[in-house]
Amino acid sequence: MRKEHKGKEAIPKRKGEFVNGAKDTLPLVMGAIPFGIVFGAVAVTTGLSSWGTVGLSSLVYAGSAQFIAIGLVAQGVTTGLVILTTLVINLRHALYAASLGAYMKHLPQRWLVPLGFWLTDETYAVAIRRYVSKDNSPHKHWYYLGSAIAMYVNWQLCTVVGIVAGYQLQNFAELGLDYAMVVTFIGITVPFITNWPMLICALAAGTTAVLCSAVPNRMGLMIAAVIGIAAGMIVECWIRPKARNK
């Protein structure tokens, strides 16, 4: 079902992996630009200082959590509750970390700490695609690093641009570039769907996500992911005798 390269191309070296990782993240970098700019612009108007805004982007580095946090701060919610909410919003990262970490047994801490810090929806999507690809390159973490740095640098620049010039760039932010994230995720997800359990997983997760879209703090996403995983595994158990003969 899936078209595979039969390993004729040379496996890229460290630098090649790094550059490819950054390059393959480009559409997601574009998609994040309006978010970063809007974040910078909105954060400073909700009473956060410029340094505080830069601090959130550079030290926390979690788009949706940053947006929700400044929203809560504007409503006068206590710091402790904002931090607790951040924990809930970012629960999905644990799922990404579990999925990627299975491939990172050999990495030392000096790699795991920064790669962990830089884990986002976007870098997860790009990196997992590289990790599951059939070649056994020992440098796939360089690909992850390339993706992570592209996203991180872009997020910092956009935050600063937003702080400085946010409201002049209103039209730019409404251009629709953010939709690039969705088509990229579609392009990454669909080739994963090579059997019935994966298809059922996608249908279950998608349906649940729509039904739970009103659940706050991105918990709908977590619920949908868990239901999707469970649905896929149930179908897998069902058809396993057949699948074994494949």
């Binding site: 505080g52 601090g55 959130l56 030290l59 926390v60 580095y61 979690a62 959590a65 946090a69 701060v73 710091t79 402790g80 904002v82 931090i83 607790l84 951040t86 924990l87 970012n90 629960l91 990262h93 644990a94 990404y96 970390a97 579990a98 990627l100 970490g101 299975a102 491939y103 990172m104 047994k105 801490q109 795991l112 700490v113 790669l115 962990g116 810090f117 884990l119």
Partner: peptide
């Protein structure tokens, strides 16, 4: 406090699982 707290909980959601699961 807000930034350091958010930084801590975000890192806790990302790093430990990545480092330990394998």
């Amino acid at each position: 406090f807000l930034i350091l707290g958010m930084m801590a909980v975000t890192f806790i959601g990302r790093y430990p699982v990545l480092a330990l699961i394998g």
